[in-house]
Amino acid sequence: MALGAAILAVMVTMVLALIRAFEGPSAYDRMLAANLFGTKTVLLIALGGYMLDWHSFLDIALLYALVNFVSTIAVMRFFEYRDMSQGPGDDGGAS
């Protein structure tokens, strides 16, 4: 019962994250929402897998958590140095 409620809450949060991902306004907002969506997916697999009695669902959740982290880092590296006139040593934003 509580497990079902928690799964519902996670799914609603995923919808909210998707709204933010579609709305933007910046690419960083979208990536933040995508990262949140990924973490919630891990939770959904763990909770849902237990409720539906899936086989070895926790391995998948563990793997998903890893992939989610690496993909976030990779995409953010890409965005950080997309403007090649600005090298890694530059301190672009600090005031």
Partner: peptide
């Protein structure tokens, strides 16, 4: 992993002129 990912996003946004 959460702090690392969060920091990466914030830093990328700053360096991206945000």
């Amino acid at each position: 992993t959460n702090p690392t990912a969060t920091h990466a996003m914030a830093k990328a946004a700053l360096h991206g002129g945000h």
